[in-house]
Simulated assay, not measured.
Amino acid sequence: MIKAMKAGFGLTALAAVALFTGSQQATSEASVCAPRDDLVNQLGLQFNESQKAVGMLGAEAVMEVFTSSQGSWTILTTDVNGNSCIMAAGEGWDDNFSTLVGQGV
């Protein structure tokens, strides 16, 4: 199981993203944290993911959803200091769902 990384020690952002997304699930005990720019760069390089949505988590953090056209997705939270943690990751993202729901499906 992946242990939380708070101070940037142990794994590079590249290895951290690979380990976390390889498990394809998050638990309350597992999160990978690194500077936001490092995680975002690796999500783009490894999985071709880009930001799809962003929302405020109070005054201290934001949540971001990154997706790829191949269906992979990652949810990051980022604090005011620019530190991000991967909260969840998976496969099967579908942008068409909201369109289908509007059509009564």
Rank of each mutant, 00 (worst) to 15 (best):
A18T: 12
T74S: 07
T27D: 06
N41Q: 14
L57A: 07
G22M: 01
A61Q: 14
L39A: 00
S31F: 07
G58Q: 02
G55C: 09
L76D: 00
G55H: 09
A18V: 08
Q51R: 15
K52W: 08
A61W: 09
W73P: 01
S31K: 13
C33A: 12
G71L: 06
A30S: 13
W73G: 00
K52I: 04
T67W: 05
L19Y: 06
L76H: 02
E60P: 00
S68C: 01
Q24C: 05
L39T: 01
T74Q: 05
S50Y: 09
D37C: 04
A34T: 03
F66S: 07
V54M: 10
Q25R: 12
E60C: 03
V65I: 11
A18F: 05
G44D: 12
L39D: 00
L43K: 09
A59L: 09
L45G: 03
P35H: 10
L57P: 00
M63R: 13
S68W: 05
N41K: 14
Q42M: 11
G22A: 02
S23Q: 15
F47M: 13
D38G: 02
S50C: 04
V62E: 07
A53K: 12
E49N: 07
K52V: 04
R36W: 04
Q24M: 09
V17P: 01
D37P: 03
W73C: 00
V65W: 06
S23Y: 06
G71E: 08
S72E: 12
Q25D: 08
L57D: 03
A53T: 10
S69M: 04
L43A: 06
G44C: 03
R36H: 08
W73T: 03
M63A: 14
Q24H: 09
A34Q: 14
E64G: 00
S23P: 01
G44K: 13
N41G: 06
I75S: 02
L45N: 11
S72A: 12
A26G: 15
F20N: 02
L43S: 06
V65M: 05
S72R: 15
Q46I: 05
A30K: 11
W73Y: 13
S28W: 06
V32D: 08
E49C: 15
S23K: 14
R36G: 00
